[in-house]
Design a protein around this nucleic acid. Structure first.
Length: 500
RNA sequence: GCCGGUAUAGUUCAAUGGUAGAACAGUGCACUCAUAAAGCACAAAAAAUGGUUCAAUUCCAUUUACCGGCACCA
């Protein structure tokens, strides 16, 4: 019975460049959790992802390419969907685009609510502008009030009236909320960082830009001179994807919303909305977005899960100049989607930074997939095909796996420690290999056929258990393996061909 | 600069106030069901200094190195 609801979302990639390894990590992790929750049979799952399409950088990129902006983002969205397919993201994922009509209306309604509640006001805003770059600069981009790219000339200060969000009003509320929700941010060291940040005091910040400067954004309600600053608009996707406000019950009373589905109520209000993000996004998800929700009078997120970064060898960041960038698409083309998923889910730390190099990848592929899982499947299925007629499914009352997954395995997934869950599977693989070595069914079958068959039958059943655990993490292999077991066939070609 | 964290075999990680475990890589043995795979065995580690203690890799302090956070960057 699907009695519970589970909502999970990634952050929305900014579409000015193809997805990098970090995006792949976040998407695949969230996908694995979503698939797992569905597999338990207890949850109705809503998996959200999509694209962040507003902002000056995208506007600039489109102009640079000489493409009409809407066409540019449309194309970017199609590319995004193709890449998700390459990463094996479930077909059931819901996509949100920040340029969707509904999202725009939703963001504007959200703004109105926050304004009505008294948390938006107009104030003079001082922006630091570098004439050389022809763009605004943040403090971290400056040294002694000089742009790092253009030393020698002081940045000029430009003044404009902007809308501000009363972030400062939420310091105490946020701290109280954190106190009451001990596992709000995972892992705990990211949570601590954020608590310290909030305790140090919050400053109100600007949430709009003049439309004359930034034409590509959502108009501020009742003030067409301004557009919303990108991330204020972007964060709202987490609820606009659920049809908010149309399906929100408290708005129905005001005659604003409606609809029977009430996805927002089901998944956000009554569910456990869970958000994956990279470590650079902790504050946006864990503090700002939560303050925004409070300001709008909406329930907070349930949990924020924070990934580390994918680095190059030695923990240095990937960059084109260093030539250590690994494109996830290349990995998929050469090794297949499940090999990429294997590495990201098992070899990459669940919460810390981890290196991704092709050398490391190949080692992990050969030992874990070719010599490990792939070889094990071959040796068991060869025996099974040869000696078990009919297949184990004809002999044993196995129904196809309604029994529960191992508790230890699911416990790790519940804690988002996917690496440990993977290690659990691979421990099983290793002990199965050992079992074959010790019980020697290939010898026994020649002396005592009945006993030999029993051993092989056990092996197949255990392989099947492994296949089931692969469902959320390596869905393609899960399908392949289960099919081979059902048909009682050895793989025609290796599941994972060894690479030298 | 301020705050927080980390420092364990070649590599990635683990446990522990009292003989430091594993995986991958390496070396050797040996098996044949399998993708020259798996299995067994061997070799290999606690940044530096000082302190607390009968005893420290584990607790404390200092030093060194590295990492993260310190807001309008998505």
């Amino acid at each position: 019975m699907k009695t519970k609801s589970f909502y999970i979302t990634t952050t929305l990639p900014y579409v000015n460049a193809p997805l990098h390894m970090g995006h792949a990590l976040e998407l695949i992790r969230a996908d694995a959790i979503a698939r797992y929750k569905k597999l338990t049979g207890e949850y109705e799952v809503y998996f959200n992802t999509g694209t962040d399409e507003h902002g000056i950088k995208i506007y600039g990129k489109a102009q640079e390419k000489g493409i009409e902006i809407q066409n540019f983002v449309d194309e970017a969205f199609e590319t995004f969907k193709k890449q998700l397919k390459m990463f094996g993201i479930t077909e059931e994922a819901h996509f949100i685009r920040t340029t969707d009509k509904h999202h725009i209306e939703s963001a504007q309604y959200f703004w109105k609510l926050v304004a009505q509640n008294g948390f938006i006001y107009k104030k003079n805003y001082e922006a630091k502008y570098c004439i050389g770059c022809e763009s605004e600069k943040t403090d971290s981009e400056l040294e002694n009030d000089e742009c790092k790219e253009h030393p020698g000339t002081k940045v000029s200060i430009i003044n404009e009236e902007n809308y501000f969000f009363k972030y400062s009003a939420f310091q105490e509320k946020l701290l109280k909320f954190y106190e009451e929700h001990k596992d709000f941010v995972i892992p705990d060291f990211r949570f601590n960082e954020m608590k310290i940040f909030v305790s140090n005091g919050l400053q109100d910040f600007s949430i709009s830009r003049l439309k004359t400067k930034m034409p590509w954004g959502i108009e501020v309600p009742e003030d067409p001179e301004h557009v919303m600053y990108v991330w204020f608009d972007a964060l709202i996707n987490y609820i606009s994807t659920l049809g908010w406000p149309e399906n929100s019950s408290h708005l129905v009373e005001e005659g604003v919303g409606g609809g029977d589905e009430n996805l927002f109520t089901k998944f956000w209000v009554n569910g456990t909305p869970t958000q994956y993000c990279g470590k650079d996004n902790t504050r946006f998800q864990g503090a700002m977005w939560q303050a925004m929700l409070m300001a709008a009078g909406l329930p907070n997120s349930h949990q924020i899960v924070v990934n580390g970064f994918i680095t190059g060898e030695g923990g240095i960041r990937m960059s084109k100049t260093l030539g250590n960038v690994v494109d996830p698409r290349d990995v998929v083309s050469e090794y297949g989607v499940d090999a990429l998923r294997y590495f990201l889910l098992r070899e990459v730390s669940s919460f810390e930074d981890s290196p991704f190099t092709l050398d490391r990848f190949k080692d992990a592929y050969n030992s874990g997939l070719a010599n490990g899982l792939g070889n094990l499947a071959s040796r068991i299925l060869t025996l099974s095909e040869k000696y078990l007629t009919p297949s184990v499914f004809g002999i044993s009352p196995l129904t196809g796996g309604e029994e529960k997954l191992p508790q230890e395995f699911t416990d790790y997934l519940e804690e988002f420690d996917i690496k440990k869950a993977m290690d659990y599977i691979w421990d099983k693989i290793q002990s199965l290999d050992k079992k074959i070595q010790e019980t020697e069914p290939f010898k026994v079958i020649k002396i005592d056929e009945k006993k030999g068959k029993e051993i092989i039958e056990e092996l197949v059943l255990e392989l099947y258990q492994i296949a089931r655990m692969l469902n959320p993490v390596m869905p393609e292999t899960n399908e392949k393996l289960k099919k081979l077991i059902r048909e009682n066939k050895k793989p025609e070609k290796p599941l994972f061909l060894r690479k030298d």
